[in-house]
Write a protein that binds this DNA or RNA. Structure first.
Lengths: 222, 222
DNA sequence: CTCCTCTATTTTGGATCCAATATTGAAAAT
DNA sequence: ATTTTCAATATTGGATCCAAAATAGAGGAG
């Protein structure tokens, strides 16, 4: 099937560049703080600077890059304070999303979550870090989408994006991967019993552990 | 130094266009649902389509316009559900901002709020609707900025933007203007006494009244 | 030797031109 | 008359070219 392979290019160059850049930034291949040379990047991606600039404007809106007039774009860097702020906002928004989701969860939704969780467990067992990051994200987003609040889900998504570059490191550790699997299982269990408070608490613990880990990683610059 | 007439123009065309478009949309001069003809708009604003398109990309990120590949941009329309969702998210984020602000408010901050509030009252008394909308917004943003959480403030700002086009109508009514003045006074009072809960409650009432009014306005399309 | 200035180069911002896609309207077939 | 097809047109997407601003570097004054 040619659908999910690298060959499926978006209908416009800007969308292709946007996806490409997002991956490069969130996976850390484009490191925080690096200035973006439009000419070089455009050539590397085989497009002109116009679609590149439009993609950068989108990323600026999402907070993945910063922009100064006549100075250009840089990959955004998160200070410790920024990191804490992002996670605090996530806590607020995700609690809301989870509570709405619990009230609306269908059996179908639970089945989807279960299957995604199995994907998470496969990736964890295999020690496949990128797959783990992707599956973990999908698990949470699947849940948030169940809230039926598309704008809320979109906000949460962009907040995840801003920290993805840092979060990848988290899954390098086997202990962390195991922990995530267990926490997801607990969450799923709470969701099945429609225990909103418990699901929220579990996810908060989940998140807090990740942020604590990241803080210690950021404290001593690599 | 070159004389800056009416308003000093931003250093780049895109920023000029961005400000211009934002005003046009938030004041309702560009009505929700209107398709955006790039060629015509570019000519009207005396720029080429390139900076216009970059400005539109920014506005898309803020949710002020929608975009479909090869179809173009439209001024975003809010359904009733969208409106409720935006206000619910605002409630969550603004409560957080206010609580942080209360804990950090300096005498200087209070002075600034007081002076902005006097501006609100002048506009209300004069029945100047655009000035009222601007001053009201400034009052709230000044408060939110005091939270010392720049990303949170930015999110709230964009949420305000998405509903500005609708909110302007609210101030057309003299009773609403008077009510807003009183509610701001109550909020300021609570802030001075560092009564966080009370400030939050007051602002929630403030917001809820606005959303209720807007709902009735949206229910019967003009 | 240091600092400043002025020029050369790099990089971004914007305009024009061309290509690709979508929309339309009219003609033809059923 | 209705529907389908296809061509003409309008609109968006992208590439190239030029202008403006910032940056870097060489040269000169103190």
């Amino acid at each position: 099937m040619s659908s999910d392979e690298a060959g499926r290019r978006p209908p416009t160059a800007q969308q292709f560049v946007l996806a490409e850049l997002r991956r490069a930034i969130t996976t850390g291949r484009l490191r925080p703080g690096t200035p973006i040379r439009q000419d070089a990047l455009a050539e590397e991606l085989q497009v002109s600077r116009v679609p590149l600039r439009e993609a950068l404007k989108t990323l600026e809106g999402e907070g993945l890059v910063t922009y100064k007039a006549h100075k250009g774009y840089c990959v955004a860097t998160l200070s410790l304070d920024d990191l804490r702020e992002v996670y605090r906002i996530r806590e607020l928004l995700e609690e809301e999303a989870v509570r709405h989701a619990v009230a609306r969860l269908s059996g179908d939704d639970l089945d989807r979550l279960e299957s995604v969780q199995e994907e998470v467990e496969r990736a964890a067992a295999a020690g496949d870090v990128p797959a783990m990051a992707a599956a973990n994200r999908l698990f949470h987003m699947t849940l948030f989408d169940c809230a039926g609040m598309p704008r809320l889900a979109r906000l949460i998504r962009t907040l995840w994006d801003t920290t993805d570059a840092y979060r990848s490191m988290y899954y390098g550790d086997a202990g962390n991967r195991e922990r995530v699997v267990k926490e997801h299982r607990a969450t799923l269990d709470a969701l099945r019993r429609r225990a909103a408070d418990e699901a929220v608490t579990t996810l908060n613990v989940h998140r807090d552990h990740a942020v604590a880990e990241l803080e210690s990683l950021l404290a001593r610059p690599s």
